[in-house]
Design a protein around this nucleic acid. Structure first.
Lengths: 122, 122
DNA sequence: TTGACATATTCCTATATAAGCATGTAATGT
DNA sequence: ACATTACATGCTTATATAGGAATATGTCAA
């Protein structure tokens, strides 16, 4: 079996970075396609195809205005993703707590001179 | 260009439903592979390959214990997804507010007999 | 009508799966 | 050493892109 279609659900649709970029750009503001083309920096057909995917899974709304089409992010459609990720919230809070507790234990045990001697990002 | 690799980031990795199922199953509990096989209902090689993807993007942690490998969801790695979706939170709150307000306006204006006469999905 | 502008769609190709099946590898018990 | 258990990896195939180029569709203006 191949990978599920990008249009099969919101999870697959937002896997593509440019589509996330488009959704961010269209959050709260209506924009016509030519504006999106400039903002995202892809050619018009590519943008139209990404918009097609986002339309098909309901992540954007379209409205026609003369020869323009005004797109806007449909935030409601992102909500299920938010809720799925939220089910893990309590676990990363636990992780943070453990990290914090370990850090504090170190601070208590080690002498002043040994603090702040962590390796930096290489 | 083809679609980005499933291992390119957490967004691509979680696009696959079985991988989300695995992450949910492994949230908070360590489990060995054979348990995941039973819980998810795929054959062992498929599960191992899904776990490989999740490992590569850091969505799970592994620990060896004799001939078993104990997997656990790394909730921290899901946090960026949660935060990305959270940027749309204010917009869906607005949407809900508008929907509610429109509904209330309709209720006030229309007579009882005209309510609930919406077109169904064709 | 004709032309110009705005957007969508079609055709093409390189690339990447996901699942099934077979096989490889590592750890344990006897 | 050998069989067994527990996973991981390699191979194959049908399918689905994402972007580029070319073209089609739709709308307004003169």
């Amino acid at each position: 079996m191949a990978r599920a279609a990008t249009t099969s659900d919101a999870f697959n649709a937002i896997a593509e970075p440019r589509r996330r970029q488009i959704l961010t750009y269209l959050a709260g503001n209506e924009r016509q396609v030519s504006e999106i083309v400039i903002a995202v920096g892809l050619d018009q057909p590519s943008i139209s195809k990404h918009l097609g995917v986002l339309r098909e899974v309901g992540l954007v709304h379209v409205r026609r205005n003369g020869r323009h089409r005004l797109y806007r992010t449909n935030a409601e459609a992102i909500r299920p993703l938010h809720e799925w990720t939220a089910t893990f919230e309590r676990y990363w809070q636990h992780t943070l707590l453990r990290v914090k507790q370990r850090a504090e234990a170190q601070m208590g045990r080690q002498p002043e001179s040994d603090r702040n001697t962590h390796k930096e990002k290489p």
